[in-house]
Write a protein that binds this DNA or RNA. Structure first.
Lengths: 165, 165
DNA sequence: CTAATCGCGGATAACACCTATCCGCGTTCA
DNA sequence: TGAACGCGGATAGGTGTTATCCGCGATTAG
């Protein structure tokens, strides 16, 4: 079940789930349990719970335990970027890690030459910075507005009704 | 041996090897065999060979078989971007793949609303575009110049001497 | 008080991909 | 002919992703 074979190669599929959940949370009136979020998106409840725990540990959401518990955003949706969510799920480590192979072999780079990072690493890190800047410029609130544009102004009204069920 | 635990999480470690190899090839006078490239960088010969085959299939290098065979860049180093190498090794598929979970659950998005790509997907793809643009702006020739700045003007002279050995 | 609901963390397992090696094949050249 | 070389397939260990289940503690409705 739920064998969707999400991203496959590189980005964890849980990122997509987490971002969509944040959009839902931004439109909810109270705490929304993982059960409800999973049901709404038609995805695995147990696995989504793992990702929500990551969001909790990253400080993006607070969880209330007990009978009517669930998740609530800790900040206004306009102050939570897509990058925040991605980093919470995927981790904060850069995708590219330089192994300094320039220091290997018969003609290793001198320590003096290694004062600056390797040119390859500089290019990779600059690209990642551009990627992060782009994701950091989009907020959960922006995504919510996009949904309204695409699906109509009543969309979140219906969502709130269903959440209240 | 060679248990370097390269990138770890996301980007294939072979990318780093491949880019460095392209820089070396850009400074070589003739075909350079995989054996030589691996020895120069202090990395696994058999595994590097696999990555070089990817570069060959992507059209970035041509391989000459036989006794004095090896690899040669197909284009001037100024016309080969780091992005070209990354795509050749990692594949051309985007890191983020939208699974359209907005069409799931009790309140699925209407077909009309799905004429545009999902807002989450749009943000992710825009970020990847920024990443690719950044990598596409750096060429192998740029990296070669960077090496000269860091390691001195004689670096590639020594490299060519060693390759001629 | 009890039971149901809920988040949390650990254990577990299937699966895919990355890393790495080895082999046989065909090619080229001394 | 033999040595060096690229190519493709087979193989295998390691790691990360995906997914599920369990017990625990917390909270609240009845």
């Amino acid at each position: 079940m739920y064998s969707r074979r999400m991203a496959g190669v590189k980005m964890s599929g849980g990122v997509e789930w987490a971002v969509h959940c944040c959009v839902v949370l931004s439109q909810a009136d109270g705490p929304v349990p993982a059960q409800r979020l999973a049901e709404f998106h038609g995805i695995s409840r147990t696995y989504l719970a793992k990702h929500l725990q990551h969001l909790s540990r990253a400080g993006l959401v607070t969880s209330t335990e007990g009978r009517i518990g669930g998740y609530v955003l800790t900040r206004p949706a306009g102050e939570i970027s897509v990058l925040d969510v991605v980093l919470a799920i995927e981790g904060r480590e850069p995708a590219f890690r330089c192994t300094e192979i320039r220091q290997n072999g018969p003609l290793p780079a001198s320590p003096a030459a290694c004062r600056r990072a390797c040119g390859v690493a500089r290019a990779m890190h600059a690209a990642e910075r551009a990627w992060r800047d782009s994701l950091g410029a989009v907020t959960i609130a922006d995504l919510g507005e996009g949904v309204l544009e695409d699906a109509g102004p009543d969309t979140f009204v219906h969502l709130r009704e269903w959440l209240g069920t």
